[in-house]
Structure formats: structure tokens, C-alpha cells
Design a protein around this nucleic acid. Sequence first.
DNA 1: GACAAAAATGAATAGCTATTCATTAACCTG
DNA 2: CAGGTTAATGAATAGCTATTCATTTTTGTC
Lengths: 193, 193
Amino acid sequence: MRISDKHSKITQAAVKVFAHKGFFNARISDIAKEAKVADGTIYLYFNNKYDILISLFEDEIGKIILQVKLLLEEESDPGQQLYIFALHHLKLLEEKKDLAEVLQMELRQSNKFMKEYRNTKFIEYIDIISAIIHQGQENGDFSKDISPGIAKRAIFGALDEMSRLWILDENPPYTLDDTAKQLSRLFLQGLAN
Amino acid sequence: MRISDKHSKITQAAVKVFAHKGFFNARISDIAKEAKVADGTIYLYFNNKYDILISLFEDEIGKIILQVKLLLEEESDPGQQLYIFALHHLKLLEEKKDLAEVLQMELRQSNKFMKEYRNTKFIEYIDIISAIIHQGQENGDFSKDISPGIAKRAIFGALDEMSRLWILDENPPYTLDDTAKQLSRLFLQGLAN
DNA sequence: GACAAAAATGAATAGCTATTCATTAACCTG
DNA sequence: CAGGTTAATGAATAGCTATTCATTTTTGTC
């Protein structure tokens, strides 16, 4: 068995366990059991419990970044790009619910120790948004009145909050697709008539 | 000493300790020490550790709701109301940093147990936003294309994410006032030119 | 100021769990 | 397939901390 196999088996197990119990309530033995591995084995691949979370975070966000960047290459209209980004972000909720839950929840749960660790992968992810906005401003589609730095966080925050609704609510009142459409419309056109 | 005095002394101490260490890393003895009270005393006023967090949450959000509703009564233009709401939300970061941090972080940290507990105070808070939007739509200021239910979460999410920036970053690149202005402009006018 | 009731104390309990490490199993390779 | 190297195991350790409750202190009343 290749090293990466066991490493990723543990990561996948951790995603499941963290999603169901939360980081602090998850026991190493839960993860080990889920991964069908001895408790001690986990420490051959990770330094400690935090390290599992951080690695997981970086690996999985890394994959998402690659995916969405690929998708965005197909489209040149910044408005459409924002829609694609929103839809792709929300689609995670359908396709990888546990992962979405961990990324969403633990990003906050771990604020305290994330202060120390420079979360470059996360920054890279939201910088995709500011790049779209910047480009839109350059070619005149978007107003230059809005700072891309603020808008990227507003848009990410909005998406993230919608995710929270899906995670907490068994029967969310909107479809993912409608939500992505409404959000991109909101951010492009605004509320005003 | 009135009951409420000790109760609120413990609450204030808990805010400080939770903000600095996070809920799971906070020890009851830390809170007791901060409140200058014996460990056991805390259990005369709260059922358990979770109960401190939940009570704190409800009490403090309750106060914020009252404040902001009062402020909003002064203003009838929905666009201005959104600005006021945003500014008031962000101002918490200056005026009560610890509280803002706890509300922000613990709202997520506690997702897992919040699933069980219907967080009505939080819903009441974000429903202030949808009420503003609804009213704007009624009087024709706002487009009816946007669902108030989605917009309220988008706006709250955006504010919340900006808060996160302030909490994690020692020197945020924007002022609170600029941020509130930019956000309300973004939500009213959108990005499009 | 004596007595009872209420409030507060903080040491002891009880239970949990991350991490280690001596031992065992699996894998190479010549 | 022997011998050595690497990987995996899981029981034991070590340390932590929420909660309890027997005891003490404070408060209020006559």
C-alpha cells in the first residue's frame, strides 16, 4: 500500500468524523476506527490532532482551487465567472457534504489557532474572487468604486453563510442553483431598482 | 449583592475567556478566576459550560437587537437603513471586541450543538435585514427579483466575514466606516457599471 | 446577637483521551 | 527464504478538567 493511500484514508476518515462531531469532540480513536487503522498509526502520518485538520484543509482546498480555476478558464465574462464561482462553491454541499461542513465549520472553530498559522490556501481561494472583480473593473464591466478586497470577502461571506443554512437545515428553502443565480444577480445588480 | 450582579459578572468573565481561548479550550476555573468567584459558584447560576455560552449568546444578542431596532426607527429610507445596520454591526468590533469575537466565532464553533437548540435570537437578528428589504420592495425602492430570505443571509454573511478579518488581522486595511459604506453600496448598486 | 436560611467555597472525584513506545507484522532484496 | 528494514499495532501513560458536595461564610430577621 502506497504511503499516500493510508494518508488519504486517514484524511477521509477525519473529514467524516470532524463533520459529525466537530473537531474538539472528535476522538483520535474515532478517526482511527473509521480509517480502519490503529490509533498509533495516525501519528506516523500526522504530528497531532491539529495537524490532521490543517493538512486536510490545505489538501482539500488545494483541490478545489484547481477545479474552479479550470472551470473559470472556459469563461471570459466576469459576471458569468462570478456565477460559476458561486455555483461551484455551493455545489460542494451536494457533492461532498462532510467536507463542506468541515471546511465551513472548522474554518471558524479553529480561528484561535489559525491566528498563528498563515492560511495561505484559503487566501488563494478567495483571491480568485478579487481577481475576477479586478479584471471586470479593468475591462469596464464593473464599477471601480468597489474595492476588490472588500468585495471578495463580502461574496465569500455570503456564500459561506448560505452554506451554513444548508448544513444546519435539513430542508433548505432554496435550490443551490437558484441561490447561486440570486447571489450573482445581487452582487452584480444590487438591490436597488 | 443582587443575583443578577453575580450572573452578569460571570457572563462578562466568560466573554473575555471564550474570546481569548475559544470555548473548548476555556476552563471553568479560568472563568471563575476572571469573575473572582469560586468554581462551584458558576454552577449556582448556570447548568453547565454550554449553558454559559448559550445564555451569553441570547442575552447579548438580545441587547444588540434592541439597540439596532431603536436606531432604525429614526430612518425610513431602506437604503440608509441597510447602511445603519451594517455600521452598527461592525461597530461592535470597536466597542466590544471580545463579545464580537465570541459571537462571531462561537456561532460556528457551536454549530454542532446549535443544531439541536433553535437559535431564535440569531434568527430575530438577521430578520431585521429581511424586514428592511421587504419594506424596500413594498415601496418600490428595491427590486422584487431578489428574495429577502437569500439577501438577508448574504448581507449578514458579508458583515460576518468582514468581522472575521478584523478579529484575525491586527491591522485591517480598511476603516469600519469605509467598510460599511462600501458594503451598503455594493448591496444596493451591485458591481455592474 | 442568636438562629436559620441562602449563598459561596474549593478540594476531591470521576472520567475522559492525546500521545507514546515496546512489540509485532509486513515487506524487500539479494 | 534469511535477515534486516520499515510500517503498523494498541495497551499503557500521563495529564487534564467539568462537576459535585460537604463545609464555611454571609445575610436577614426577630
